[in-house]
């Protein structure tokens, strides 16, 4: 086993980080073993600095809490254009919750310990269901998928803007979640309560991974 693989599997979080890549590769890479899209027709794209952002609004003053993750891993698979100019994409974005920062150290500490409980649930995994899009048309389209967060997997729906070129795909997906759906009580701190509804954005640029 190469040093690289040893490094990837050397910690719990690394294992979990690589898991969706493996799952993504198996599921969407179209290995003939699973009888999915033939490998020759699919293009694997990946990204090592994918970003997940959240925006929560606190009342009573409507303050915005904006956190950003770092070094997320995106693994996407696209199919070639069909006769009508459509493509499909599916895949995963995985982020380590410990990398989230909102710009205030104490708030991040509380978020990690009391909300994310990132020691127990180190990663969030967004899985995008197969999505058909017209390559030549820019704009937002609806998507569906699942989000595994805080030990709970729930379906999510939102909009995504995709720009696809050969060997490259830019994405900007937006959706919202209810904290209580993921077993999280809306946090309250010094008279400020974050609303149950939190906006999530996943964006980045994945490139051909070979």
């Amino acid at each position: 086993m190469s040093k690289k693989w040893i490094r990837l599997f050397s910690s719990k979080s690394s294992c979990l980080n690589i898991l969706p890549i493996v799952v993504g590769a198996l599921g969407s890479g179209g290995l003939p073993l699973f009888g999915l899209v033939p490998l020759s027709n699919a293009e694997s794209l990946s990204q090592k600095d994918a970003k997940l952002e959240y925006v929560g609004i606190g009342k009573p003053s409507f303050l915005k809490v904006h956190g950003e993750s770092k070094n997320g891993v995106a693994q996407l698979t696209t199919t070639p254009l069909d006769a009508a100019g459509n493509q499909t994409v599916k895949g995963t974005v995985t982020v380590a919750l410990a990398t989230f920062s909102s710009g205030i150290a104490l708030r991040d500490k509380h978020t990690q310990e009391k909300i994310f409980e990132s020691a127990q649930f180190p990663n969030a995994l967004l899985t995008l269901d197969e999505l058909k899009f017209l390559q030549s048309k820019k704009g937002t389209i609806d998507f569906s998928g699942t989000l595994n967060f805080h030990g709970v997997t729930k379906p999510v729906k939102g909009t995504v803007e995709i720009t696809s070129q050969i060997g490259k795909l830019e994405y900007d997906a937006k959706f919202s979640i209810q904290l209580t759906d993921f077993g999280i009580k809306p946090p309250e701190y010094m008279g400020m309560t974050i609303q149950n509804n939190v906006e999530i954005e996943a964006k980045g640029k994945a490139v051909a991974s070979n």
Partner: peptide, 23 residues
């Protein structure tokens, strides 16, 4: 600059100044 667009994040008064709230 930290996203606190309304004065009531920190102050009792809706347009700011004066007594601070807990946050």
């Amino acid at each position: 600059r930290h996203g606190y667009v309304n004065c009531t994040t920190c102050h009792i008064s809706p347009n700011g100044g004066g007594v601070l709230n807990d946050y």
